[in-house]
Design a protein around this nucleic acid. Structure first.
Lengths: 256, 256
DNA sequence: ATAATCTTATTGTCGGACAATAGGACCTTT
DNA sequence: AAAGGTCCTATTGTCCGACAATAAGATTAT
């Protein structure tokens, strides 16, 4: 038997070490969000490596949202926003070829619970945003594209109203991936828009009344309705998400 | 009123354009996982920019796991693994100062549902891994550190057994953040290890019997037990996660 | 055939260079 | 004095060229 006297050496490129060093300080709270990091020249001096190397390290952290370029293009520590994270997760799910079935199964579970939490915690400001959203939905019943945007937003606001960021982040990627499909349901099911509006109205009302149970029941119905529509629109539950459904995720590329 | 005749110009550094161009091809399936990307020199030629610029672009994608260095150090398209994603999400949650309350609230909801799904879909191979896990737990009841690792693993296997990658990814970050706290519960609550073992044993049994309801009920109990222990161990439910609880997340830095 | 050596391609790192730009300081105009 | 223009400086984004380290492949020696 071979003797294992030595640990495997950790041999990492310098740009990684740079990134890890900065990340560690951020994670341990030694540098806090909105704190400025020095200029590239400063980092060169501190780490004792070339500027190119520093830059490569910075890119790593820039991507994950821990660093951003702020005023005067200087580097600041920053919190990765939930929207950006959710987008990134969604993309990964797509690459992993997630099926409609997995998505709807997840939402059938999460959405009713989400709205139940929301009924307990929603603020007046969030109620107002929902009212605006519903009003817009009513006005633009004909514009399918806009309507599916509003649908996605409606559910996002509710998730936000649950006031639980862990839960929010657990739900959001599935929401981002599935609700755009609403658009295709509208094409196949003429009565879908009005049913959607009715459901949204009722859920809003339930939230205004803080009626947890009513909210949950209607959301449950709403989601199952959605799934039925999805099937009627020709989606294969065990198939992957079709390209057209993802257009928004791809074009969001630009600024995240 | 100001006329909005012009769209905001998209002015982006070249290294971003490089990254976006590659990412787009990956997302649209024009390049698939495990496909080799050319060498840096190739990319320099194709994009018509300098190698430094290409490298910075590559770093962005390397971080999000869409590119990796494979054999012969060449660049390959790759799927961001769930474990890596979950780690990254967990870190973001920490930076956003999630509270214990948000974590346990989420798990109280997700875990029972997870095991119910698992009861339906678990494979023999996964059952076997759970048996090994439980056996190890029984043997090492004294070693708190090891025990909390095994606990985290136990719940992860169950999540995997639900056979829903969306759900898996929704649950994992919360699991990563909360179960390490088990260790501190053991210090405060002497009878905790044996109670944990009993619960795990019973849940395993329920899974073997495909008894969805029994599994759910026990998991529910198990999680609430966990929360009680957490409180007894002195954790402030409305406080953030303490540094020591995060050690594992930080040291994982190295190779993800 | 196996081991040792050489070759080559590629990455990681370095140093230096320069244009573009943002911000500040300073000046001009009304 | 406020608004606009000009100059100055620091910093970033990009380019160029170079080289050591390394891994894979080819070649030679044992």
């Amino acid at each position: 038997m071979r003797q294992n006297k030595f640990k495997k050496l950790e041999i990492m490129p310098a740009y990684r070490l740079v990134a890890d060093a900065i990340e560690k300080q951020i994670m341990t709270g030694q540098i806090k969000p909105e704190d400025p990091i020095g200029t590239e020249a400063d980092l060169v001096e501190q780490f004792g490596v070339n500027r190119s190397t520093v830059r490569e390290g910075i890119r790593l952290l820039e991507q994950s949202g821990m660093l951003r370029r702020g005023e005067k293009r200087r580097l600041y520590v920053s919190l990765p926003g939930y929207d950006k994270l959710a987008t990134r997760i969604s993309r990964s799910l797509v690459l992993h070829k997630v099926t409609f079935r997995e998505l709807v199964e997840t939402l059938e579970i999460l959405e009713p619970t989400t709205i139940a939490l929301a009924a307990k915690h929603i603020t007046e400001e969030q109620l107002e945003r929902l009212r605006i959203n519903v009003a817009a939905t009513e006005k633009e019943l004909e514009d399918r594209d806009r309507l599916s945007q509003l649908d996605t937003e409606f559910h996002s606001i509710i998730a936000e109203a649950a006031h639980n960021s862990v839960f929010l982040l657990a739900r959001e990627p599935a929401g981002l991936l599935i609700y755009p499909a609403t658009q295709y349901i509208f094409e196949a099911v003429p009565e879908a828009p009005s049913r959607l509006l009715e459901a949204h109205k009722t859920m809003l009302q339930a939230l205004e009344e803080r009626d947890e149970e009513k909210a949950r029941v209607w959301m449950d119905k709403h989601v199952r309705d959605f799934v039925k529509g999805l099937v009627r629109s020709g989606a294969e539950l065990d198939g992957q998400i079709a390209q057209p459904h993802l257009a928004h995720l791809l074009s969001l590329d630009t600024y995240l």
